[in-house]
Amino acid sequence: MTRPVVGVIGNHHLIENRFACQLVGERNLWALAQVCGALPLTFAGCPEITDMEALLATVDGIVLTGARANVHPSRFGLAEDPAHEPYDARRDSLALALVEACVDRGVPLLAICRGFQEMAVAYGSTLHPEIRNLPGRMNHRMPRLPNGEIHPDQEVVFADRHEVRLAPGGAFARIMGRDLIRVNSLHGQGIMQAGPRVVVEGVAEDETIEAIRVDGAKGFALGVQWHAEYDPQTNPVNRALFEAFGQAISGYSKAA
C-alpha cells in the first residue's frame, strides 16, 4: 500500500557557528509516520533550493513546523529589532507563498507554532514579537530554571500549561470532540490582529490566539500555536489533530 507523502519544512541553522544546515525536529517526523501513516519528506526552507511547483507535485500534504527564528517584522509592517532575532527571511519567503499555494489548490496544510504564525501573516495578520509583554498575558515561553537556562526535562518543557477554548461547532471542536482543551506553550510571537481570512477557533484563558483556520480553503488548512508534534502518540488532543490531518492527506492522495 502506498503511503501518502508529507513535506516538512526545514529551518536554517548554523552548527558550531560555521556549518549551514537545514534542520527538522524529529518529533514532527515521528508524528507523521506513527499517527498519520505518512512518509515524511524534509524540504529546505529556502526558495533558492526548493522548487515549490515540484514540491507540490510530489506531496500529499505540507507541515510547517515550529522554529526558533521569528517571522520577520517587515512581513506585517513593523521595524526590525535585534532584540527579537533570530530571523529566517528565506523561510519566510518560501513558507508564506507555500501557505497560499496549498490553500488555493486544496493541498492539506498543518501549521504549528512558527508555521501557525506564517499562516496568519500570509493572510494579513499582524504579530506581536513578545506576546507575554502585553497587559494581562501569561508567559507563553518555555519553562526555565532560576538561572535562566532552559529546563532540562522535556516533560516539563512540553507539559500542558494552559487551557484553550474552542469555537463551538468549529473545525477544531469537531476534531477534538469538545470545546475545551489543554495544551503546551513554547512561543514568543503571537497574533495581534487576525487577517480577514484568518478564522480564530481557539483562544487561551489570557485571550492569546491558539487555533486558526483559513476561510474559504479548498482543503485542510489549520494552524495551532502549541507544539502538537510533541506527543500525539499519547496525548489525545494532539493525536486527534494529527489523525484528522492523516485523513486529509489520505483523501488528497486518493483524489490525485
Rank of each mutant, 00 (worst) to 15 (best):
L78K: 14
A79L: 14
E80T: 10
P82G: 09
H84D: 13
Y87C: 11
D88F: 08
A89M: 13
R90N: 13
R90F: 13
R90E: 15
D92C: 12
D92G: 10
D92H: 11
D92I: 12
L94Q: 09
L94R: 09
A95M: 08
L96S: 09
A97M: 11
A97W: 01
V99D: 06
V99M: 06
E100I: 00
A101Y: 01
D104G: 14
D104S: 15
D104T: 10
R105V: 09
V107M: 11
P108C: 04
P108M: 02
L109T: 03
L110V: 07
L110M: 08
L110A: 11
L110T: 06
A111T: 05
I112T: 04
C113H: 02
C113S: 11
R114C: 08
R114F: 01
G115K: 04
G115Y: 03
F116Y: 14
F116S: 04
E118F: 07
V121Q: 00
V121K: 00
G124W: 12
G124T: 03
S125L: 05
T126C: 05
T126W: 07
L127V: 07
L127G: 02
H128A: 12
P129T: 02
P129G: 03
E130A: 15
I131H: 08
N133K: 13
N133T: 15
N133Q: 14
N133R: 14
L134P: 06
L134A: 11
P135K: 00
P135D: 07
G136V: 03
M138K: 15
M138G: 00
H140S: 12
H140E: 11
R141H: 15
R144Q: 11
P146I: 08
P146C: 07
P146M: 05
G148S: 10
E149Q: 13
E149K: 09
I150W: 11
H151V: 10
P152D: 11
D153R: 11
D153L: 06
Q154Y: 11
V157L: 14
F158V: 01
F158I: 01
F158N: 14
A159M: 10
A159F: 03
A159S: 15
H162Q: 12
E163I: 08
R165P: 01
R165I: 02
R165T: 14
L166M: 13
L166H: 12
A167I: 01
A167F: 02
P168M: 08
P168N: 07
F172T: 00
F172Q: 03
F172R: 00
F172S: 09
A173P: 08
A173Q: 10
R174F: 01
R174L: 12
R174T: 13
I175V: 15
M176C: 15
G177F: 12
G177P: 09
R178K: 14
D179R: 06
D179W: 00
I181W: 05
I181E: 05
I181D: 06
R182Q: 14
V183D: 08
S185Q: 06
L186H: 12
H187M: 08
G188V: 00
G188H: 15
G190L: 10
G190N: 07
A194Y: 00
A194F: 00
P196D: 00
V203H: 07
A204V: 05
E205W: 04
